[in-house]
């Protein structure tokens, strides 16, 4: 009898839906849809606005590196060097920042005394609060000057590696400088993400490793890093996303040229975001539309990076 009573009450409640529930559900659903709408809106804007110049373009947009778009007649421009520079700068930043971020996170979670860990965690978070234009100023006003002699040293001893081949830029305003500044900028976000996943590693997994006679480092390799891997990748990808789109610091530090160059110590290369920022104020003719087309490519790259990241994170889900 009781069960019947309960189920009827349940059904009655389901029919008489509460106003609060309805409003909340609708609000949550609306927010979810809004995200999609914004994303679609941005994509539509980029595609529509760039169509104009892409139709008039004389060069192959994806393979050409020239940028002659500020005209009403026969513009010819391409995004190849820009896309290359964007990915290169972000890749340098990622390669430099990820190991350091993992190291900081491991130190904070497993090695540092509690007080120092708290202070250090706070300082890392503070790094994230610095505006990118300030990083740009720091980069051009101080860092590149310090780096120039180091670059000369790199060229002397490691010049045989093509990446470090000369002639070295005497100003230090190179791809590597931009990558280093970007690395500092994305360090906090990667550190924060990895620190959070390390904190989530269940005590029981850590004890399992320790009870087998693992040292602290072995415990980290056995239980912490595998468990945290999706989080580390996620953090790195978030950082990569930021590095790809970062504008001000790169625009200020890099002395740009539209070439595809692997020589990190020479001036040259440019990123999409910095190019848009620098070119936009003086864009005429098809210029604006062409810059929007470049923006579309950046949008696509970022989207692709995020999708790859999701895929990597979800791949061995069974084991997580």
């Amino acid at each position: 009898m009781t069960t019947t009573d309960l189920s009827t009450t349940g059904r009655a409640q389901r029919q008489r839906r509460r106003l609060g529930d309805v409003l909340f559900a609708a609000g949550a659903q609306g927010s979810g849809i809004l995200i999609l709408a914004i994303l679609a809106g941005v994509a539509a804007f980029l595609i529509l606005q760039s169509f104009d110049s892409l139709a008039a373009n004389q060069a192959n947009f994806l393979t050409s590196s020239e940028w002659d778009a500020n005209t009403r007649e026969e513009p010819s421009f391409g995004v190849a060097a820009l896309a290359f520079g964007t990915v290169l700068a972000a890749a340098i930043a990622l390669v430099l920042a990820t190991p350091v971020a993992i190291g900081i996170a491991l130190f904070i979670v497993f090695y540092a005394p509690r007080r120092i860990a708290a202070i250090l965690g706070y300082l890392v978070d503070l790094l994230a609060a610095i505006p990118s234009v300030v990083y740009g100023l720091w980069g051009i006003g101080w860092l590149v000057v310090q780096l120039a002699p180091f670059y000369a040293w790199l060229e002397t001893y490691f010049g045989w590696i093509p990446l470090f081949a000369g002639p070295v830029s005497t100003t230090g305003r190179t791809m590597l400088s931009a990558g280093i500044v970007l690395a500092v900028m994305i360090l906090p976000i990667i550190t924060a993400m990895t620190r959070d996943v390390f904190l989530q590693v269940p005590q029981s997994h850590r004890e399992a490793a320790l009870a087998l006679g693992a040292t602290r480092w072995e415990m980290i390799r056995m239980a912490v890093l595998p468990f945290g891997r999706p989080g580390i990748i996620g953090g790195a990808m978030l950082g990569l996303g930021r590095a790809l789109g970062e504008t001000m610091a790169v625009a200020m530090i890099l002395s740009p040229s539209l070439v595809i160059s692997w020589f990190l110590l020479q001036s040259g290369n440019q990123t999409i975001a910095a190019h848009i920022a620098l070119q936009y104020p003086e864009a005429t003719g098809y210029g604006v539309s062409a810059l929007i087309a470049a923006g579309l490519v950046l949008f696509a790259i970022t989207l692709a990076v995020n999708m790859v990241a999701r895929f990597v994170v979800s791949r061995r889900k069974e084991f997580a």
Binding site: S204, E207, A208, L210, P226
Partner: peptide, 22 residues
Amino acid sequence: PVEVRREVGMVFQRPNPFPTMS
């Protein structure tokens, strides 16, 4: 202590195989 634990093994209350391992 690492040497001690290699000599004295332990099994815990909740089964805790490493989730990322086969």
